[in-house]
Design a protein around this nucleic acid. Structure first.
Lengths: 344, 344
DNA sequence: TTGTATGCGTTATCAC
DNA sequence: GTGATAACGCATACAA
C-alpha cells in the first residue's frame, strides 16, 4: 500500500521541500514567496503559489521561529477585570493580527503578582514573541516595562497611566470626557453632582476625577469631597456609593459613576428607593458594559473607543518600527434618557 | 569589552547547552529534568535545577515543537458572541493550562464562515497544537470535527449540541435546568408562563425549550405556542419578546427567558409599562451575564458552571488520552427576588 | 542513571 | 532573480 499522499488525509502535513520540488524551484524561493519578499519573478511566484495551494501547505511556525528572526506571534498581556473590556481589547488586537498574518498569544495575569516580571520573561524567552501589547493596569507595572526593554521586545501600551514618554501608546482623553459629561449635567442645571471613583489601580480613575473637578472649577462651583465616593468598577460598589450619596443631608441631584457597572448599581438603588428616573435623579457613566447602557432609562455614557484603541495599538507594533508614537482616539458622549434637569 | 553574560541583561537568552555545561551534565539530562522524566538522580536534578535558575533558563518553545512530538500548546476555538461566556470559557481553560504548563492559543472565529475548516487546518499545520477545545456553537460544525479527526488532533467539546458520541465532551443538563426553573414558577402558582427562546444556532436553546415543555407536560398543562417567542440571547430581543408577550390578550404572569441578557430586557419592558416587580410579573433566566442577575429585583437564574466546564474540558484533553469521556457538571437554581406568586 | 548522534522544517548567508 | 548550505535549540532513538 502506497504511503498516503503528502498533505492529504491522514498524512503528515506537506513541507516546504514538497512544495519546492513540485514547483521546480529551491526552498529558498518558496520561502521568498511565503514571506512576500521582493526579487521573485511573477511567473515563479505563480508557480509556487499554485504548488502551495495544491499541497495545502502551511509553514511550520516552530521552524520559522527557530530559524528566523521573527516568530510571527505577538502577545497581549492583560489583567482579569472586566470581561467586556477584555473582550473589546482582544477583538481589536486580534483583528489587526489577522491582517498582519500574525498569531496572538493571550496572556491573562495578575497585575499585582510579584512574579509577573518572571512570567513575562518566561513568555519572551519561550515564545520569542515579536512584540507585546499591554493593557491597563499592566501598562503601569514598571518591572514589566523594564523586562521588555531589557530583552529588546517592542511593546505598545493601551491607556497607560504613568511615564507616558516611555513607550508607544494609544489612549483616549479620560479627563476631557469626564469634563464634558460633567458639563452636560451642569448645563442641565445640576449643582450638586455626586461622583463615584473608579478602581484605584486604574489610571483612568484619577483622570476622570480630574475632569469632573475641572468642569466644576470652570463653572465656579466648589469641589465638595462629600460628593465623591470610592468605587471598584463593579455593580456592588456602585450600589454602596449611591446609598451613601443619597443618604447625605443635601443629596446630589445627579450622580456620575466612573463606569456603567457602577451606574447600573446606582439605578438599582434609585429604583429601590422609589425614585423616578430621571426626574428625581440623573445618572451617567462610562460604557464598560453595553448591557448597563441599555437599561431603562437608557444610560447616558461616554462611549469609549476600546476596540479601536486595541486595534491601533497592535498597528503601532507592526508599523512604528520602534518609534515612540502616541495616538489619541476620540470618545463620544452618548446622551440618552437617564439625565434631565434637576427637580424643582 | 566582554560579551554580556548569557541570560543576563541585553544578552541572548541562555540555551540548554549553557545550562548543561554549567551543571556538568549532558543536554539530554537537562532535557530530562525539564520534562520531568524519571531516571535522574536527586543530586543531578538539583545541580541542573540550580543551573537553570542561575541562567534563568526557559527552553525555546519553537525548538521543542520542532524536535519533539508535542508543542506544549493547545488551542481554544470559539465564536464571538457573549463576552461573558467567552471570558468564563477562556479563564477555565487557561487555568488548567497553567497547571499543565501548556500555552493557550485563543482562536476566535465565525462559526458560520465557509472558510472555518481551512482556518482550523492552517492552525493545526502551523502550530501543531497538542489538542483543541471547542466551545458552542463551533462544537457543531461537522467540517471542523472532520478536519480535527483527519489530522489526528485530540479535541474536547464544551456543550455540544449534536453527535454526542463523536468526541469527548463536557456539558450541563440544560433541559433539566429549564425543567426545574419552570417547576419553580409552577409551584408558585403560575399557569401562563411565557418563554423566550435562545439563539437558534445554539444547541442549548432547543434543550431549554424542551425542559420547559417537559415541566408543563408533567404538570398536565397544555403547551401553547403563543407563549413562546424567538430570541437571540441579547437585550434587544428580550425587550421585543416581552412586548409581544405582554400584548397578548391573556398575557403570561411569568416570563422565562433563555438567558439573562434577555431577562434584563424583559425587566426593562416591565418597568417601562409601570409593572411592579415581581408582584405583577415574575421573571427568570440563565446567567450568561452576572450584571443582569444583580438588577433590581435580583433575577432568579440558573447558574451555569461555564468556567468549570471549560476547566474540565481542558482536563479531559490532558488526562483522557483519547478516550471518549462525557462529563456532566451540575447547575444550580439561584432563587432571588424576581419571582413571586401570580397576581390575584 | 547518563551520554552521543541525528534530524525536525524553516530562514540567513552568501554565492551564482 | 535564484540556489546551496549552514545554522536555529531542542527531543528522539539508541548506546553505554
Amino acid at each position: 500500500m502506497a504511503p498516503p499522499k503528502k498533505g492529504s488525509l491522514g498524512a503528515d502535513p506537506a513541507t516546504m521541500k514538497d512544495v519546492a520540488e513540485a514547483a521546480g524551484v529551491s526552498m529558498k524561493t518558496v520561502s521568498r514567496v511565503l514571506n512576500r519578499e521582493r526579487y521573485v519573478s511573477d511567473e515563479t511566484r505563480q508557480r509556487v503559489e499554485a504548488a502551495i495551494a495544491e499541497f495545502n501547505f502551511h509553514p511550520s511556525a516552530a521552524a520559522r521561529t527557530l530559524a528566523g528572526k521573527r516568530s510571527h506571534q505577538i502577545a497581549l498581556i492583560y489583567d482579569n477585570h472586566s470581561p467586556h473590556y477584555i473582550y473589546q481589547i482582544q477583538t481589536g488586537v486580534w483583528t489587526r493580527c489577522v491582517e498582519e498574518r500574525v498569531r496572538l498569544l493571550a496572556q491573562p495575569c495578575d497585575a499585582a503578582s510579584p512574579d509577573l516580571e518572571a512570567e513575562v520573561r518566561a513568555l519572551i524567552d519561550q515564545t520569542r514573541v515579536d512584540g507585546v501589547v499591554l493593557s491597563s493596569p499592566v501598562t503601569d507595572v514598571a518591572a514589566v516595562l523594564e523586562e521588555l526593554e531589557l530583552r529588546g521586545v517592542p511593546y505598545v501600551r493601551i491607556s497607560p497611566g504613568t511615564e507616558h514618554e516611555r513607550s508607544a501608546s494609544v489612549s483616549m482623553d479620560d479627563a476631557q470626557a469626564a469634563d464634558e459629561m460633567t458639563m452636560h449635567l451642569l448645563s442641565l442645571g445640576h449643582r450638586r453632582i455626586g461622583f463615584i471613583l473608579g478602581h484605584p489601580n486604574h489610571a483612568a480613575s484619577d483622570l476622570r476625577l480630574y475632569g469632573y473637578r475641572r468642569a466644576l472649577d470652570r463653572a465656579g462651583l466648589p469641589f465638595e469631597p462629600k460628593y465623591v465616593r470610592p468605587g471598584l468598577f463593579d455593580f456592588a460598589s456602585g450600589e454602596a456609593a449611591a446609598d451613601a450619596l443619597l443618604d447625605l443631608p443635601n443629596p446630589p441631584t445627579a450622580i456620575f459613576a466612573s463606569n456603567d457597572d457602577m451606574a447600573a448599581g446606582v439605578m438599582t438603588v434609585a429604583h429601590r428607593r422609589g425614585l423616578s428616573l430621571p426626574r428625581d435623579l440623573s445618572i451617567t457613566g462610562f460604557d464598560d458594559t453595553p448591557l448597563a447602557s441599555q437599561l431603562w432609562p437608557p444610560l447616558t455614557t461616554v462611549r469609549q473607543p476600546t476596540r479601536d484603541l486595541a486595534y491601533a495599538a497592535a498597528g503601532l507594533l507592526f508599523d512604528a518600527e520602534g518609534e515612540i508614537i502616541h495616538r489619541r482616539l476620540p470618545h463620544e458622549l452618548v446622551l440618552r434618557g437617564s439625565t434631565a434637569p434637576p427637580p424643582g
